Computed example of a mutant assay.
Amino acid sequence: MTNLQFDDKGLIPVIVQHAITREVLTLAYMNEESYKKTVETKETWFFSRSRQELWHKGATSGNKQQVVSIRTDCDSDALVVEVLPNGPACHTGEETCFHNNLEKFDDTVGYNVITSLISIIEERQKTMPEGAYTTYLFNEGVDKICKKVGEESAEVIIASKNNDAEELKWEAADLMYHLLVLLQNQNVSFYELLQVLQKRHETKTHN
């Protein structure tokens, strides 16, 4: 920490980023004390400029953030803190504070479409709105969900064997959706799945 460059108010800007999805969650500030607490507890602590006090993210809401890594820029006057969040980062309930689009210059689809779908599936399981297909699947239970995963897997295979790229995209999307529902039904986080893939990748890379 001795190399960090705090400003004249004793603060340093912090970009909080999801360690797996790479989504930027929020921009906050730390002073020396909140930085030390973050390192000690491995959870994010910030300094609230409006309240002029330390702020433990999630202490009230329960949406704490497990710190995976802390990086600084080339001038040591800004930080990137990679976290695994235990809920939305924004006080509005949105996954990220940066959820208001001002401009979009192309049709590139980012990873956030998956995070949005995961949030919808989680919400469906909690509220079980009548008439929703996801509600139907949860009501039918694991046997029905597994059957749909099997059916969509078969459709992916058929589209691939037919060399039908357009059909493959649609069937793969159906498979992904039903797999996410199955994971939710089994209380397995999609991010845990990604962690498994990451560990396998790291193992193969170092061997």
Rank of each mutant, 00 (worst) to 15 (best):
D7F: 02
D7Y: 05
D7Q: 06
D7T: 07
G10A: 09
L11R: 06
I12R: 09
I12M: 09
I12H: 04
P13E: 06
V14F: 04
V14C: 09
V16W: 02
V16T: 12
V16F: 01
Q17T: 08
Q17K: 13
Q17H: 09
A19Y: 15
A19L: 13
A19G: 09
I20M: 05
I20S: 06
T21F: 13
R22Q: 12
E23M: 03
V24E: 06
L25G: 01
M30V: 07
N31R: 12
E33M: 01
Y35P: 04
K36W: 00
E40N: 14
R49H: 07
S50R: 11
R51M: 05
H56N: 04
K57Y: 01
G58I: 08
G58Y: 04
S61H: 08
S61L: 05
N63V: 03
N63W: 13
Q66R: 08
S69C: 03
S69V: 00
R71F: 04
R71Q: 14
T72L: 00
C74T: 10
C74A: 11
S76A: 15
S76L: 13
D77K: 05
D77E: 05
A78Q: 07
E82C: 01
V83L: 14
P85N: 11
N86K: 15
A89M: 10
H91D: 05
T92R: 05
G93M: 02
G93Q: 09
E94Y: 01
E94A: 14
E95I: 14
C97V: 02
D106P: 11
T108H: 14
G110C: 07
Y111C: 02
Y111R: 07
V113P: 00
I114H: 10
S116K: 07
I118E: 15
I120R: 10
E122Y: 05
K126S: 03
K126V: 10
E130T: 14
E130Y: 08
G131W: 02
Y133R: 11
T134D: 08
T134G: 08
Y136C: 00
F138M: 06
F138W: 05
E140S: 07
E140P: 01
G141N: 06
G141I: 03
D143W: 01
D143S: 11
I145V: 06
I145L: 03
I145R: 04
C146V: 11
C146T: 15
C146L: 15
K147Q: 15
K148M: 14
